[in-house]
Amino acid sequence: MKVSSTPIEGLLVIEPSVFRDDRGYFFEPFNDRRFHEATGLDVTFVQDNESLSKAYTVRGLHFQEPPVPQGKLVRVSRGKAFDVAVDLRKESPTFGQHHMVLLSEENKLQFWIPPGFAHGFLTLEDDTVFSYKCTGYYAPECERTLRWNDPILAIDWGVEEPLISEKDADAPGWTEYESPF
């Protein structure tokens, strides 16, 4: 397993060891001991989620506020997606900035997004399966959404009119949000 930092402190890109031969491949999407050793993080995952989306679907920007914030370890098991994390930590030098990673069935990369970040993704192929491990249980009273195309965040999704839920389309913008992180 190879772990790479990003320009935003706390966000990590994880490349698992993949063993390929003429039959195909084998890899461990998650191994608790190896994850802790490679990242130095002391986190416990309590819930796994999975979504299936058509091409050019945007989901996000989602997060949970305290008292039930969520860290997420995300990956694409089928298809391809641009994955985005936005820094919501007020004291961070990268507050309001984002980082994007291409996750795919082929590259098998994973993206660690700690609590204090909004998260979203754009699928690039039909039937993209997006999976994520969460450090906190889903708590609807703590769930929040930021507008995916807020001009202040300036995320270049590479698509003008994605498929998007009504909730995500009607989400508040950056200037309407007061971060508790």
Rank of each mutant, 00 (worst) to 15 (best):
N49A: 07
L103E: 05
F121C: 03
V101M: 08
E106L: 12
F130P: 03
P67G: 06
Q64E: 09
A154S: 14
S51A: 12
F45V: 07
K90Q: 10
T175M: 10
G136C: 03
V74P: 00
D170Y: 14
V58Q: 09
G71K: 01
G60T: 13
E9L: 06
F19H: 15
C134K: 03
F19L: 09
V43Y: 08
Y137L: 13
F111D: 07
P114G: 12
Y177W: 12
D168G: 11
R89C: 03
D126M: 09
P93L: 11
R147K: 15
S165G: 06
K133Q: 08
L109K: 15
T44H: 13
E161M: 05
K108Y: 07
L146P: 01
V58E: 07
G60F: 05
E176P: 00
V74G: 00
S165V: 07
V101L: 04
I155N: 05
V58C: 05
N31W: 13
T135Q: 09
Y177Q: 10
V159S: 01
L124K: 00
G96W: 08
L102H: 07
R33S: 11
A55F: 01
T128G: 02
I8L: 14
T57F: 06
R75C: 11
K72W: 12
D48V: 13
L163T: 09
D32M: 03
F19A: 08
R59C: 10
L102V: 14
S53L: 06
Y138F: 14
P16S: 09
A118W: 01
E50F: 03
N49T: 11
T145E: 03
G136D: 08
H98V: 06
I14V: 10
A154P: 02
F121S: 04
Y132R: 08
K2E: 15
D22F: 05
P115Y: 11
S131I: 13
G79I: 14
L122N: 10
G60Q: 08
D32R: 12
N149R: 10
E176I: 04
D126R: 14
